[in-house]
C-alpha cells in the first residue's frame, strides 16, 4: 500500500481525494487544508485523518507520497520541502508560478530518484494519445500547421473573485486554462520555442486575462496558433481541441472524438483513405473507479504505480511541465 497524503481540498483536491480513497493500492494517510468548512465534513464522515498544518501531517502521518492541490504560488516551496523529506510528489498544474523555480526542483527529484508528476490529465485521454501515436508514426506526413483551442464557461460575468482571478497567485486564463493545450502541443508535436506575438484579453476579469491568442513556433520549426477563452458560455464545460495539418492528411481531435483525414492510399492499420472518426469509447482503457472522466483516475493510478516501482515515471514529469511554464512566460512577454 502506498501511504498517500493530500494537501489542498479545493475543486481538484476533492476529486483526487475521492480517487485515492477508492484506489486499492492506496492508504489515505492524511488530508490537509486551511479551510475548516470542507475539512470538518471530511473529518466527520470519512475515515481519513485530517490536518490544518501540512508539516504536522508530514510529521505525524509520514506519507510515502503526497498530492499537492493548492494555489500555484505555493507549489515551488511545498514541492521542494516534500522532496527534501524524500516524498514522491504529484502536483497540480501549472507546475510553477515562475519558470525559473523549476530547474532546482527537477534536479532535486532526479538526484533523489523521487517520482514526480504534474496533473496535465489530457495526456491520459484516449483520443489525444492516439493523436500522438499518429504524429510520431508520421501518419499525416510532414506537419506544417497546428491550431490549439480551449474554450469554456469559467468567468462569464464581472464580480467573481477567487485565487483563480488573482495574477499573483497563479490565476488567469493563460495559467489555469491555456496551460492544458500548450502542454498538449509540447507533448504531441514539440516544445514551444518562440512566441511571435500574443494577446491577453480581459473580458470580465479586472486583474487577469480571460482569453489568450498567440502565434507560436516550436523547436521542430512547426508553427501555429493558440486560441483560448474561458469566458465562453456557449460551452457547457471545458472543451480542448487540436487541429493538425500535414502533407498527407489532417487531424482534428478533442477529448471525445478524433477525426483523421488521409489523402493517400497508404494508411495506418485500422484506418482508411479519406475521413476516419474514432470515439473516446474505442480508445479509452477502463478504470477501477470513475469520477468525471477516466483520465483523472488513470493519471493518479500512473503516479501510484510509479511510486510502487511497477513502471517508470515518464509522463507529465516536472521536466515536461517546466517546458509549459516556460511557454507561458514567453506568451506573456510576446504581447503585442
Amino acid at each position: 500500500m502506498v501511504k498517500t497524503g493530500i494537501i489542498g481540498i479545493g475543486k481538484m483536491g476533492i476529486s483526487h481525494l475521492a480517487i485515492l480513497g477508492a484506489h486499492k493500492d492506496v492508504t489515505v494517510a492524511g488530508v490537509c487544508d486551511t479551510s475548516k468548512m470542507m475539512l470538518d465534513a471530511i473529518e466527520k464522515y470519512s475515515p481519513f485523518p485530517c490536518f490544518t498544518d501540512y508539516r504536522k501531517m508530514l510529521d505525524t502521518a509520514k506519507p510515502d507520497a503526497v498530492v499537492v492541490a493548492v494555489p500555484t504560488k505555493f507549489h515551488a516551496t511545498m514541492v521542494s520541502e516534500l522532496l527534501d523529506r524524500n516524498i514522491h510528489v504529484f502536483v497540480e498544474k501549472p507546475f510553477c508560478l515562475k519558470a525559473d523555480e523549476a530547474p532546482a526542483l527537477i534536479e532535486k527529484a532526479r538526484a533523489k530518484k523521487l517520482v514526480n508528476q504534474v496533473g496535465y490529465h489530457n495526456k491520459f485521454i484516449g483520443t489525444f494519445r492516439e493523436v500522438k501515436r499518429m504524429v510520431k508514426a508520421g501518419a499525416i506526413g510532414e506537419i506544417y500547421h497546428f491550431h490549439g483551442q480551449s474554450y469554456g464557461p469559467v468567468v462569464v460575468k464581472t464580480k467573481q473573485e477567487s485565487w483563480r482571478t488573482n495574477p499573483e497567485e497563479g490565476g488567469g486564463c493563460l495559467m489555469d486554462y491555456a496551460s492544458h493545450i500548450i502542454d498538449l502541443i509540447n507533448d504531441i508535436l514539440s516544445p514551444v520555442e518562440k512566441v511571435n506575438s500574443s494577446q491577453l484579453k480581459s473580458i470580465f476579469s479586472r486583474e487577469v486575462d480571460d482569453a489568450v491568442y498567440a502565434m507560436m513556433e516550436l523547436r521542430n520549426k512547426v508553427s501555429g496558433i493558440l486560441s483560448v477563452n474561458w469566458s465562453d458560455d456557449t460551452f457547457r464545460k471545458m472543451s480542448t481541441s487540436i487541429t493538425l495539418n500535414g502533407s498527407k492528411g489532417k487531424i482534428i481531435s478533442d477529448a471525445n472524438e478524433l477525426k483523421i483525414y488521409f489523402k493517400e492510399k497508404e494508411v495506418p492499420e485500422g484506418y482508411s483513405t479519406g475521413w476516419n472518426v474514432k470515439y473516446v469509447t474505442d480508445l479509452t482503457e477502463p478504470v477501477d473507479y470513475y469520477l468525471r472522466g477516466e483520465e483523472y483516475t488513470a493519471q493518479l493510478d500512473y503516479f501510484v504505480q510509479s511510486v510502487k516501482g511497477t513502471r517508470p515515471n515518464l509522463i507529465n514529469t516536472f521536466e515536461s511541465a517546466a517546458l509549459t511554464d516556460k511557454a507561458i512566460s514567453m506568451i506573456r512577454k510576446a504581447q503585442s
Binding site: 476533492i14 476529486s15 481525494l17 475521492a18 480517487i19 485515492l20 480513497g21 477508492a22 471530511i42 464522515y45 470519512s46 475515515p47 481519513f48 473507479y289 470513475y290 469520477l291
Partner: peptide, 8 residues
C-alpha cells in the same frame, strides 16, 4: 461517486 470515493 464523490461521496463513495471519500467513503462517506
Amino acid at each position: 461517486d464523490l461521496l463513495l470515493g471519500m467513503q462517506m
